[in-house]
Design a protein around this nucleic acid. Structure first.
Lengths: 362, 362
DNA sequence: CATTGATATGAATCCTACG
DNA sequence: ACGTAGGATTCATATCAAT
């Protein structure tokens, strides 16, 4: 099943030119996810030497220069407004920054109506040290994940991320190394192509957590196309916007050499909701027997199932979700709380819903 | 040696009443460090809560004063302005918040002229989970450490923090558990006094890293006085501002039951600079002999020391810091780079400075 | 081939006291 | 305020040469 496509939305392409102009050409409500890695406005001056006397090559690019906060704020306000316009109602945006700019971005985004879902910390185990010993080593960057507005929906593939995190709920602090080694794109001179290339693992978590297959992921500061490469691997569509020809060529080459990866996880099978089949349906299908006993997970007799699908403890006739409250003081998901006996063993009543679903489909 | 005290500054007391009013009564340029744990703005229900979960009482009966970002921003702008006014020229401020409010705070602080030195992540290994599985577990809070302005000085006890961090430069991500167990204040009913009391370890790192002994640490949202208790332990002075009588009583009791801890680390011996004794002084003291050879650490002959304290390689007469550039291409700390021979063994010229210092003091 | 050591480098608001 | 001289300062990882 593919998403509906809007012919005005040019997917899997890099749009060359000014970020704000290109955004203005995109239609309202057409993008599922935006990842934006804008200039940070680092405000460094002079040169920084390592303790061994070599020069640290930070960001000296023209694209990171702004006159003052006012000019930077205006620039960001403009591209963020366009981003919000083109997002689908249930779309979301991720923005990355560091302490130099992230407080500008967060403030502006809240004022524009974006709703922060999480701020995520990219903790870098291999960040450069503070050579001069003047502050704490700056070993993280910050990501803002926002829905379009306070009450708008959004995609979050909770179970998929839990699985990826070793079975534990994924948290707002991500430990990911900076992009070095083979992954770091280098030119013929052996120097890094882009001064701030992001690691694919970062984009992997972003895209996997908050898109569905075939969604459209837009990156208004595409650079060397990490967003495009990861989107392609995961079976999502991308749109890149980039001004500099040098980066565009590298990105095209990179994405052409990237293939979609076969991995069932990316199709979000873990996110599938249980089949909508009621206890009454299970009785009609002869999965549950009217008046048979419902047990809890410890094998204690709790109540019996009635032929109308409700359960009774001899006093009250309640839904399977309300009955647990009489025993443990709060409502529960009855599908996971109740068991019946089959061949002398406890069997979750939830299993029967999947059996019926399977039988229907085969 | 104690710091100069300003009689208008009431140290080691809790000032009862409205935060901004109390701040207004403090003199300009009188405080070394501020730690602020301000109310944060919960837009979900329109109620303003402290990070410790207690309701924040603004100006009497004006709850809706904080009904939107604008009013919250004004409140923060007001107390932050006062904080900046009362800070000494080389003073600094730490502010803690979460994603709901930290972007307001950071933006306002930058606009007021505060200069961010680091944003520090308090990563909580035992944070409560996201019960509904709707987002990433929010497992961190953010601290902003700022100097009064871009070029103002500040205190950073680099070597002390490096020592505390197992010999490695301390970083901007701090892994500290939330406050539980014995440390957690509980009322007579056995219930916690605060829902999210700050751990002492957090304040310990803040105060130890950025104050000197006897400095004055002000907390305008004092609560139950974690800042005061840790300041006392470390041999620093505190000033608390708190509006609620209940918390003032708890804080007083707590601080009275706290004692200054004896630990040489807190006196910042590690931060001491080498004695200011020149090579010329060492010649006068007969530690160095005019025209003797200076070696590098490999025992190679580099130059000779002249009677005026400069060194000469037969061509140039330079300082001990400039001479290494002729041999390895960059300036070095000559005190650590040069050696002389005594009893046939290499001896660092730096050792002589400590010898002279010791002889002077005894 | 495995191991060791030297070298290179990464979004950086990176010195400070004194005259 | 500004210039100058003194002198303090680095972590993880990849690569490559040497053993």
């Amino acid at each position: 099943m593919t998403n509906k496509t809007d012919e005005r939305v040019p997917v899997n392409q890099i749009l060359e030119g000014d970020c704000i102009e290109r955004l203005r050409n995109l239609p309202d409500n057409s993008i599922d996810l935006i990842f934006a890695d804008p200039p940070y406005f680092m405000q460094t001056d002079g040169i920084l030497l390592r303790n061994n006397g070599t020069k640290f090559e930070g960001v000296e690019d023209e694209w990171d220069k702004f006159a003052d906060y006012k000019e930077y704020d205006e620039f960001c306000s403009n591209w963020l407004k366009e981003c919000r316009r083109i997002l689908k109602p249930k779309g979301a945006i991720w923005v990355i920054g560091s302490f130099q700019n992230i407080y500008r971005l967060g403030y502006i985004m809240q004022n524009l109506g974006f709703w922060i879902l999480n701020d995520v910390i990219w903790s870098k185990p291999n960040a450069p040290p503070n050579f001069k010993g003047t502050r704490f080593q700056n070993s993280h960057e910050t990501l803002l994940w926002c829905s379009k507005s306070k009450n708008s929906g959004y995609t979050f593939n909770y179970k998929t991320m839990k699985q990826e995190n070793g079975g534990k709920q994924d948290s707002s602090v991500w430990n990911i190394g900076i992009c070095i080694g083979q992954e770091r794109l280098k030119g013929e001179d052996g120097k890094k192509v882009h001064s701030t290339q992001k690691p694919e693992k970062l984009l992997y978590k972003i895209i996997l957590s908050s898109t569905k297959p075939n969604d459209i992921v837009l990156d208004p500061f595409f650079g060397t196309g990490t967003t495009g490469a990861v989107a392609k691997k995961l079976g999502r569509n991308f749109i890149g916007i980039e001004r500099e020809e040098k980066y565009i060529q590298e990105a095209k080459k990179r994405i052409d050499n990237t293939n979609q990866e076969k991995n069932e996880l990316y199709n979000l099978g873990l996110e599938e909701k249980p089949p909508k089949i009621s206890t009454y349906d299970l009785i009609l299908k002869n999965k549950l027997i009217p008046n048979e006993i419902f047990y809890n997970s410890k094998g204690e007799e709790i109540c019996k199932i009635l032929k109308n699908g409700k359960v009774s403890d001899g006093i009250d006739e309640l839904s399977i979700h309300d009955m647990p409250e009489k025993f443990i003081g709060r409502r529960m998901n009855g599908w996971e709380w109740f068991f019946v006996k089959r061949d002398g063993k406890l069997k979750s009543i939830n299993d029967f819903r999947y059996e019926v679903k399977y039988e229907r489909e085969n």
